[in-house]
Protein backbone atom coordinates (compact mmCIF):
# COMPACT_ATOMS: atom_id res chain seq x y z
CA UNK A 1 0.00 0.00 0.00
CA UNK A 2 1.29 3.45 -0.85
CA UNK A 3 2.14 5.81 2.00
CA UNK A 4 -0.60 8.17 3.16
CA UNK A 5 0.04 11.85 2.69
CA UNK A 6 -0.06 14.13 5.71
CA UNK A 7 0.21 17.81 4.78
CA UNK A 8 1.25 20.30 7.44
CA UNK A 9 0.27 23.95 7.00
CA UNK A 10 2.26 26.22 9.28
CA UNK A 11 1.33 29.88 9.44
CA UNK A 12 4.16 30.94 11.72
CA UNK A 13 6.15 33.93 10.52
CA UNK A 14 9.16 34.01 12.84
CA UNK A 15 12.24 31.81 12.59
CA UNK A 16 12.31 29.62 14.59
CA UNK A 17 8.57 29.47 15.02
CA UNK A 18 6.60 27.95 17.87
CA UNK A 19 3.77 27.50 15.37
CA UNK A 20 6.00 25.32 13.24
CA UNK A 21 7.12 23.48 16.37
CA UNK A 22 3.53 22.66 17.32
CA UNK A 23 2.74 21.70 13.72
CA UNK A 24 5.71 19.33 13.55
CA UNK A 25 4.77 17.68 16.84
CA UNK A 26 1.19 17.18 15.72
CA UNK A 27 2.50 15.64 12.49
CA UNK A 28 4.91 13.37 14.42
CA UNK A 29 2.11 12.27 16.74
CA UNK A 30 -0.07 11.47 13.74
CA UNK A 31 2.63 9.53 11.92
CA UNK A 32 3.42 7.51 15.10
CA UNK A 33 -0.24 6.74 15.68
CA UNK A 34 -0.61 5.66 12.05
CA UNK A 35 2.50 3.47 12.36
CA UNK A 36 0.90 1.72 15.36
CA UNK A 37 -1.98 0.90 13.04
CA UNK A 38 0.44 -0.38 10.41
CA UNK A 39 -0.16 2.57 8.11
CA UNK A 40 2.82 4.26 6.52
CA UNK A 41 2.68 8.04 6.09
CA UNK A 42 4.84 10.75 4.60
CA UNK A 43 4.73 14.37 5.65
CA UNK A 44 4.81 17.45 3.42
CA UNK A 45 5.27 20.80 5.13
CA UNK A 46 3.81 24.00 3.70
CA UNK A 47 5.42 27.08 5.30
CA UNK A 48 3.15 30.01 4.55
CA UNK A 49 5.96 32.52 5.09
CA UNK A 50 7.66 31.20 1.95
CA UNK A 51 4.43 31.62 -0.04
CA UNK A 52 3.43 35.05 1.23
CA UNK A 53 3.97 36.90 -2.07
CA UNK A 54 2.38 34.13 -4.14
CA UNK A 55 -0.70 34.18 -1.88
CA UNK A 56 -1.18 37.92 -2.36
CA UNK A 57 -0.52 37.63 -6.10
CA UNK A 58 -3.19 34.96 -6.43
CA UNK A 59 -5.62 37.13 -4.52
CA UNK A 60 -5.08 39.72 -7.25
CA UNK A 61 -4.66 37.59 -10.37
CA UNK A 62 -6.72 34.47 -9.63
CA UNK A 63 -4.04 31.95 -10.53
CA UNK A 64 -1.48 30.15 -8.36
CA UNK A 65 2.18 30.39 -9.18
CA UNK A 66 5.32 28.62 -8.06
CA UNK A 67 5.30 27.02 -4.64
CA UNK A 68 1.69 27.99 -4.02
CA UNK A 69 0.51 25.83 -6.91
CA UNK A 70 2.49 22.91 -5.45
CA UNK A 71 1.07 23.52 -1.96
CA UNK A 72 -2.50 23.58 -3.30
CA UNK A 73 -1.86 20.40 -5.24
CA UNK A 74 -0.49 18.72 -2.09
CA UNK A 75 -3.50 19.78 0.00
CA UNK A 76 -6.00 18.62 -2.58
CA UNK A 77 -4.37 15.18 -2.53
CA UNK A 78 -3.84 14.99 1.25
CA UNK A 79 -5.11 12.08 3.36
CA UNK A 80 -4.82 14.23 6.47
CA UNK A 81 -3.99 17.83 7.25
CA UNK A 82 -2.36 19.55 10.22
CA UNK A 83 -3.20 23.27 10.16
CA UNK A 84 -1.60 25.59 12.70
CA UNK A 85 -1.65 29.36 12.89
CA UNK A 86 -0.34 31.93 15.34
CA UNK A 87 -2.98 34.09 16.99
CA UNK A 88 -2.81 37.67 15.73
CA UNK A 89 -5.20 40.22 17.17
CA UNK A 90 -7.65 37.71 18.60
CA UNK A 91 -7.88 35.44 15.55
CA UNK A 92 -5.92 33.45 12.94
CA UNK A 93 -3.10 35.30 11.21
CA UNK A 94 -4.10 37.24 8.10
CA UNK A 95 -1.69 35.30 5.92
CA UNK A 96 -3.22 32.04 7.13
CA UNK A 97 -6.71 33.23 6.18
CA UNK A 98 -5.48 34.58 2.83
CA UNK A 99 -3.97 31.17 2.07
CA UNK A 100 -7.31 29.54 2.87
CA UNK A 101 -9.12 32.19 0.78
CA UNK A 102 -7.28 31.17 -2.39
CA UNK A 103 -7.77 27.42 -1.88
CA UNK A 104 -10.27 25.77 -4.16
CA UNK A 105 -13.49 25.70 -2.14
CA UNK A 106 -13.69 21.91 -2.40
CA UNK A 107 -10.00 21.21 -1.81
CA UNK A 108 -10.49 20.00 1.79
CA UNK A 109 -14.03 18.63 1.55
CA UNK A 110 -14.13 15.50 3.69
CA UNK A 111 -10.41 15.64 4.47
CA UNK A 112 -9.47 14.82 8.12
CA UNK A 113 -7.90 17.89 9.71
CA UNK A 114 -6.40 18.66 13.10
CA UNK A 115 -6.33 22.30 14.10
CA UNK A 116 -3.75 24.09 16.21
CA UNK A 117 -2.89 27.62 17.27
CA UNK A 118 -0.16 29.32 19.21
CA UNK A 119 -0.18 32.49 21.28
CA UNK A 120 1.51 34.36 24.07
CA UNK A 121 -0.90 33.40 26.81
CA UNK A 122 -3.58 30.81 27.45
CA UNK A 123 -6.19 33.58 27.32
CA UNK A 124 -6.37 32.99 23.54
CA UNK A 125 -7.04 29.27 23.83
CA UNK A 126 -10.55 29.40 22.38
CA UNK A 127 -9.32 30.83 19.08
CA UNK A 128 -9.18 27.25 17.85
CA UNK A 129 -12.88 26.85 18.60
CA UNK A 130 -14.33 30.23 17.70
CA UNK A 131 -12.16 31.13 14.67
CA UNK A 132 -10.47 28.08 13.17
CA UNK A 133 -13.21 25.49 13.60
CA UNK A 134 -15.96 27.49 11.82
CA UNK A 135 -13.57 28.26 8.96
CA UNK A 136 -12.83 24.59 8.38
CA UNK A 137 -16.47 23.68 8.90
CA UNK A 138 -17.25 26.02 5.97
CA UNK A 139 -14.68 24.16 3.87
CA UNK A 140 -16.43 20.90 4.71
CA UNK A 141 -13.30 19.44 6.32
CA UNK A 142 -13.57 16.50 8.73
CA UNK A 143 -12.11 18.26 11.79
CA UNK A 144 -11.13 16.07 14.76
CA UNK A 145 -12.61 17.00 18.18
CA UNK A 146 -9.29 17.88 19.81
CA UNK A 147 -7.78 21.19 18.77
CA UNK A 148 -4.46 22.12 20.33
CA UNK A 149 -3.61 25.57 21.60
CA UNK A 150 -0.07 26.12 22.82
CA UNK A 151 0.74 29.20 24.87
CA UNK A 152 4.33 30.28 25.46
CA UNK A 153 4.27 28.76 28.94
CA UNK A 154 3.25 25.38 27.56
CA UNK A 155 6.73 25.03 26.07
CA UNK A 156 8.36 25.30 29.56
CA UNK A 157 9.91 22.15 30.96
CA UNK A 158 6.84 21.08 32.90
CA UNK A 159 4.35 23.54 31.46
CA UNK A 160 1.70 25.33 33.47
CA UNK A 161 -0.99 22.78 32.82
CA UNK A 162 -0.10 19.76 34.87
CA UNK A 163 -3.52 18.19 34.57
CA UNK A 164 -3.41 17.86 30.78
CA UNK A 165 0.01 19.04 29.59
CA UNK A 166 0.73 19.97 25.96
CA UNK A 167 2.37 16.63 25.01
CA UNK A 168 -0.78 14.79 26.10
CA UNK A 169 -3.00 17.08 24.04
CA UNK A 170 -0.76 16.68 21.02
CA UNK A 171 -0.77 12.88 21.38
CA UNK A 172 -4.56 12.78 21.67
CA UNK A 173 -5.04 15.02 18.64
CA UNK A 174 -2.56 12.93 16.62
CA UNK A 175 -4.43 9.75 17.65
CA UNK A 176 -7.74 11.20 16.47
CA UNK A 177 -6.34 12.34 13.14
CA UNK A 178 -4.62 8.97 12.59
CA UNK A 179 -7.83 7.11 13.35
CA UNK A 180 -9.75 9.07 10.70
CA UNK A 181 -6.97 8.81 8.13
CA UNK A 182 -6.65 5.07 8.63
CA UNK A 183 -10.41 4.58 8.35
CA UNK A 184 -10.62 6.25 4.92
CA UNK A 185 -9.72 5.11 1.46
CA UNK A 186 -6.51 6.78 0.25
CA UNK A 187 -7.24 10.24 -1.15
CA UNK A 188 -7.59 10.46 -4.90
CA UNK A 189 -6.82 13.79 -6.52
CA UNK A 190 -9.80 14.81 -8.65
CA UNK A 191 -8.65 17.00 -11.52
CA UNK A 192 -10.63 19.76 -13.21
CA UNK A 193 -11.34 17.45 -16.13
CA UNK A 194 -12.08 14.20 -14.29
CA UNK A 195 -15.71 14.79 -13.46
CA UNK A 196 -17.13 16.91 -16.29
CA UNK A 197 -20.74 15.85 -16.89
CA UNK A 198 -21.64 14.77 -20.41
CA UNK A 199 -23.51 17.35 -22.43
CA UNK A 200 -26.65 15.24 -22.37
CA UNK A 201 -26.54 15.44 -18.57
CA UNK A 202 -25.94 19.18 -18.73
CA UNK A 203 -28.93 19.64 -21.03
CA UNK A 204 -31.13 17.58 -18.78
CA UNK A 205 -29.93 19.28 -15.60
Amino acid sequence: MTARSIVVVSGGLSQPSSTRMLADRLADATVSALAERGVEARVTVVELRDLAHEVVDMTLTGYARGGLAEAQEALAGADGVVAVTPVYTASYAGLFKSFVDVLDKDALRGTPVVLGATGGTARHSLVVEHALRPLFAYLGADVVPTGVFAATDDWAEAGTDDVRPLPDRIRRAGEQLAERVAAREPARRVGLYDAVPSFEDLLGA
Partner: peptide, 15 residues
Protein backbone atom coordinates in the same frame (compact mmCIF):
# COMPACT_ATOMS: atom_id res chain seq x y z
CA UNK B 1 -7.01 46.96 -13.39
CA UNK B 2 -7.08 43.23 -12.56
CA UNK B 3 -3.35 42.53 -12.25
CA UNK B 4 -1.85 45.85 -11.11
CA UNK B 5 -0.16 45.99 -7.71
CA UNK B 6 0.31 42.22 -7.95
CA UNK B 7 3.08 40.25 -9.65
CA UNK B 8 5.98 42.15 -11.20
CA UNK B 9 5.92 42.74 -14.96
CA UNK B 10 8.90 40.36 -15.16
CA UNK B 11 6.91 37.55 -13.47
CA UNK B 12 3.68 38.28 -15.30
CA UNK B 13 5.25 38.36 -18.77
CA UNK B 14 6.98 35.06 -18.03
CA UNK B 15 3.87 33.32 -16.69
Amino acid sequence: PVYGHGPSMEDFTRE
